[in-house]
Simulated assay, not measured.
Amino acid sequence: MAAQLHRDAVVIDGLIVAKWDRDLFEGMRRGGLTAANCTVSIWEGLGDTVDQIAQMNALIEANADCLLKVHTTADIERAKREGRTGVILGFQNATAFEDRLGYVQIFKDLGVGVVQLCYNTQNLVGTGCYERDGGLSGFGREILAEMNRVGILCDLSHVGPNTAREAIAESRKPVCYSHCLPSGLKDHPRNKSDAELKFIADHGGFVGVTMFTPFLKNGVNSTVDDYVEAIRYVFDLVGEENVGIGTDFTQGHDAAFFARLVHDKGYARRLTNFGEIVNPLGIRTVAEYPNLTAALLKGGFTPTQARRIMGENWLRVLKDVWGE
């Protein structure tokens, strides 16, 4: 039953930041991934981010048998029908907007569908989770309003608690934690408290649960069942319509990539040390998404709940924000 359910389901991953190559794309198809928020900007400004988008566009075109660029939820539905994976362009930082409000519309026109306000540290719009958090700036409020207007989903996964709370309250559209874990299972600056998870859900927001092992209770010894435990924890807090997956797959990357992630601006002071990084046993690669569906059913979720968690909930939220 699990295999058939997975084949029929819309499977949407709220965050992938893997090494983009043919092996990964073929694994996405073997895993039955319908669409994913694919990171094309972390520390980059305008010019470098445009270059990253150009490179992703070229990859999508060169691998059109596997991939389809997503602008609307209709594109996600098309990807499902055609057996391809829809690529949603996403940022993990608002630095690409620089200090120009008009850049929000420009990036929307280029196909960007999800933008995280801050990546771990302070920028012009607010503060990340590894610093004392002064909250959403005046410019940040303008950026958020413009994201609401053009239809870009606001992500708060790496954002500090004050900035996140103010953004949740300020936004006229649903916002999300695209990839997070509950601090109730492991205390970590990147994990969210029960109160934070309830607050975003109570304000119409959404929670994608990550499986990044440094943040999971059992660390590198975690399995797909530990991931399901975290999903269950969030599910019980926010309800079955407000939770999905956001694996944070980093498949294929080397130590230099992770070193850049954990240094402010990609090169400055070191913010944290992840230690060993290995995905949970049972979902080590993107080809193993079916194992997660099976583990959800084994963990007591109903088929309807499993379909919602694996992608239907994401599809609804994206349609609400994008408007199509």
Rank of each mutant, 00 (worst) to 15 (best):
T39F: 03
V40P: 01
S41A: 13
S41T: 06
S41E: 06
S41R: 04
I42P: 01
W43K: 01
W43A: 06
L46W: 13
L46K: 09
L46R: 12
G47D: 14
G47S: 15
D48E: 14
T49R: 04
V50F: 09
V50D: 00
D51F: 08
Q52P: 05
Q52K: 10
I53N: 04
I53K: 00
I53Q: 03
A54E: 11
Q55V: 01
M56D: 10
M56N: 09
M56L: 12
M56E: 08
N57C: 08
N57E: 11
A58Y: 09
A58D: 13
L59F: 08
L59Q: 14
I60L: 07
I60A: 15
E61S: 10
A62R: 10
A62H: 04
N63H: 15
N63C: 09
A64L: 11
A64M: 10
A64F: 14
D65C: 04
D65V: 07
C66I: 00
C66M: 10
C66T: 06
L67K: 05
L67I: 03
K69G: 05
V70W: 00
H71D: 06
T72F: 07
T72K: 13
T73R: 15
A74I: 08
A74D: 14
I76C: 01
E77T: 08
R78C: 10
R78S: 14
